[in-house]
Design a protein around this nucleic acid. Structure first.
Lengths: 230, 230
DNA sequence: AAGCCTTTGTGAATACGCGCACAAAGTCGC
DNA sequence: GCGACTTTGTGCGCGTATTCACAAAGGCTT
């Protein structure tokens, strides 16, 4: 279930506040979901609650961590060390949840050799070596769109079976490989869609908040869009 | 629909290759979805296809752009200029799709005043001014978790009605405000979950690819997790 | 110890999304 | 101009997710 990590985060926050026990109602509220949904989700991994009391935070944290596979370490390689790759390398949420970044790789000679977050950026040529030596099972692709499929093919050939893709392309992979995609601009586009809806829809009245710029662009042909670089 | 931006990206790629017309089958394949689903999605915004031929790429690009509200400019402010905020500020996928970054804001005096992607980072104190002066309608929150809710409350009070949240917290907002959340570590956790499944599940056999590290950690109490910083 | 109160776990109803499969519609070749 | 072929648009059935509502279960108070 995709919601377990959210529950886990909420539970960690409760732990930090010293809360020992939590009801489904409270936890659901903290996680932003319906309480029945939360109880059903938790029941799928066993009955760890006590009726009349709630769930023991520490025990639940352990059970969810185990279910998600966070009780073991996962070895990650980040390919593409641009702005985004750098941000990912320094992201605290990885190391603290059992994800160990074993390699940073880039094709740009100016970036190779730089030290980032305690790691030296390696050359993309060493991709297969790094994957093999460290036992990388998850690859994070943060390259420009044009390079992503090629990199993906290589990491898959080297034995990686999970890919987190930040490049704005649809990767094609064998059926045994999992790909998850994070696309920064798609999220913004979805927000723009809802924002427009609030303002009356594509055919409705404009001029509300956020529409003071370029009211009449809709009447023109769209400009030539440039494919997003990294 | 959350898939429209994906279609749009695929269409732009086709446009760049000079393709004038495309069938639902081809476009669906490029977007990584079922062709029937694609046709149903497109039919929801009107019938823009020609039976026996397909869809005219340019016309479809325009229609989807209009539906998504990309035929107008959206003014964005990025709050929190750490690694991630910097990456977002330099992300080409924003400007090319009608999203204009009007302000970069941070609370750290060492960051305020720096020039990033052609903009000077302002102090968070000027948040309300920046939102008002530029007509910001979408706020991107890339602050540490602890600061996110406070920043969110302020941007909402200042009139922003759409928030893109990169901080690892569940933001609470009035019902008229849209929030979308991008959580880098959650995506990895979901991958780890599937990866573990492939290796036999939490109770199954270990030792396959990616599990050569810390096989026995599951037997120990989980370590104290540190809440993710930015 | 007994009853009340809180909270879980889950059956059942509902809503939703997905994909198949096909008829309608339009094009292209002859 | 006509028929065969291609492709769209969509009705329908199915499986999954979501929510409601309540009975079972445990703790707490008296």
């Amino acid at each position: 279930m995709a919601r377990l990590p959210v529950y886990l985060r909420a539970l960690h926050a409760l732990q930090d506040r010293g809360v020992a026990t939590v009801s489904s109602e409270e936890l659901a509220s903290a996680a932003g979901v319906n309480s029945a949904k939360l109880r059903k989700d938790l029941s799928h991994l066993g009955s760890y609650g006590t009726r009349g009391v709630g769930y023991e935070v520490e025990y639940l944290v352990y059970q969810i961590s185990r279910e998600l596979g966070l009780t073991q370490d996962w070895v990650v390689a980040i390919i593409g060390v641009g702005n985004l790759g750098r941000a990912l390398a320094g992201y605290g949420g990885f190391a603290s949840r059992g994800f160990r970044v074993a390699g940073l790789l880039d094709a740009d000679e100016r970036i190779v050799g730089q030290e980032i977050a305690g790691l030296t950026v390696g050359h993309i040529d060493r991709l297969e070596d790094v994957i093999g030596e460290h036992g990388v099972s998850i690859a994070v692709i943060a390259t420009p769109a044009a390079a992503a499929q090629g990199v993906c093919d290589r990491v898959v050939a080297a034995g990686v079976t999970s890919v987190l893709n930040f490049a704005p392309v649809v990767l094609s992979v064998p059926e045994w490989v999992d790909v998850r995609k994070v696309d920064l601009s798609i999220e913004l586009q979805i927000l723009a869609f809802h924002e427009q809806r609030k303002a009356g829809g594509p055919d409705g009245v404009r001029g509300l908040n956020g529409t003071r710029a370029a009211l009449d662009r809709a009447a023109r042909e769209p400009v030539q869009y440039v494919e997003a670089a990294e």
